[in-house]
């Protein structure tokens, strides 16, 4: 019984999280003495999965699936799990996967635990550690159902190389009209920009930046770092930035390696959504700003002086370090 992993693609290429969940699946498979089987949809770069410990790829090619469809994708994964007899299924934390996961869990009569931050604490009983209370706590959750679905938090486990020979098999699940009763009409996505979900680094601005006209330096900083841009809730409520950039407890969660907060006070609701980030840097002119208590590094200073200087220093650093 292999460990099944859903490796997501975007326009025919694996997403970064595909390699992370594959690495996680390999770790679980090692503990169970099994192999890893991946499901990939409309992607032909299967060999790259071998690097992360995948032995077999179920290759689904179907034009109908060029646009993500939660019900249809859940159905494919359910059929793959049944065909392979898989009882452990590893998923990412992307918006699409979090959409399909509860559908899949229900189809398989399984137990689904999202936001898992490390390899299982034990496999018998099957216990995983996940965040709860918006990063203010962790739960050790036992999955008692026969089929176990694990949603791995972004950047929590990381990528681990385990060179393995890959065997690719075509897989043609049966899909019917009933799988397409919800249809995509239009996708409105910023192209050529790193998304908050995929980013290693996130640069975020708060009300301290005074107005939308001052976001140029935030974007410039993000550009030198190859980072995604984000903002606090009032900034999106005021319409300075799009809603999709709002991070925090009621916005998007951030679990990047580096989170840089500029002119953000560090309210508890903001921190709850971003504290899963590994390293946090705060730039704020008020030494009493609560964010300093939650940060690793900080500069007490005026963002309008510090940020342009930081951009310059980073450019110099990049020039020297390639």
């Amino acid at each position: 019984m292999p460990v099944l992993v859903y490796t997501e693609s975007d326009k025919g290429k694996f997403k970064k999280n595909a390699f992370e969940v594959a690495s996680y699946a390999h770790k679980v498979a090692q503990e169970l003495g099994d192999i890893v089987t991946a499901v990939a949809v409309n992607n032909d770069e299967h060999e790259t999965l071998g690097k992360y410990g995948v032995s077999k790829v179920l290759n689904v090619s179907n034009d109908q699936l060029d646009t993500f469809n939660a019900k249809a994708y859940a159905n494919i994964l359910a059929q793959a799990a049944e065909a392979e007899g898989a009882k452990v299924i590893i998923l990412s934390s992307s918006a699409d996967t979090k959409f399909l996961a509860p559908i899949l869990a229900t189809k398989l009569n399984g137990g689904y635990v999202p936001n898992v931050v490390e390899a299982p604490m034990s496999t018998s009983p099957f216990v995983v550690k996940r965040t709860a209370f918006s990063n203010k706590g962790f739960a050790h959750t036992e999955i008692t159902a026969k089929t176990k679905l694990i949603g791995v938090s972004n950047n929590a486990f990381g990528v681990a190389e385990n060179e393995t020979a890959v065997n690719v098999e075509d897989f043609s699940p049966a899909l019917g009209d009933g799988d397409f009763t919800t249809r995509s009409v239009e996708v409105d996505k910023v192209m050529g920009k790193v998304t908050i979900a995929d980013a290693d680094i996130v640069v975020s601005g708060g009300r301290g930046l005074k107005g939308p006209e001052n976001w140029g330096m935030v974007e410039d900083l993000a550009e030198v770092l190859g980072a995604a841009t984000a903002c606090s809730k009032p900034v999106s409520d005021l319409g300075w930035r799009p809603h999709s950039e709002h991070v925090g407890q009621t916005g998007k969660p951030v679990a990047s390696n580096l989170y840089i907060a500029i002119g953000i006070s560090g309210a508890i609701q903001h921190l709850a959504g971003v504290s899963a980030s590994k390293t946090k840097v705060v730039i704020n002119n008020d030494p009493e700003a609560p964010f300093f208590k939650a940060a690793d590094y900080g500069i007490v200073g005026d963002a309008f002086e510090v940020v342009p200087e930081l951009i310059e220093k980073l450019k110099e650093f990049k020039a020297q370090n390639g």
């Binding site: 706590g137 050790h140 999955i143 705060v282």
Partner: peptide, 26 residues
């Protein structure tokens, strides 16, 4: 009930922030 929370824990206490002077951004 396919899942059951066995135990909870709080995140480890964070060490103090390392402050860098505003004139030493490098």
């Amino acid at each position: 009930m396919p899942t059951q929370d066995q135990k909870f824990e709080k995140p480890a206490a964070k060490g103090p922030v390392k402050l860098v002077e505003a004139d030493n951004v490098g």
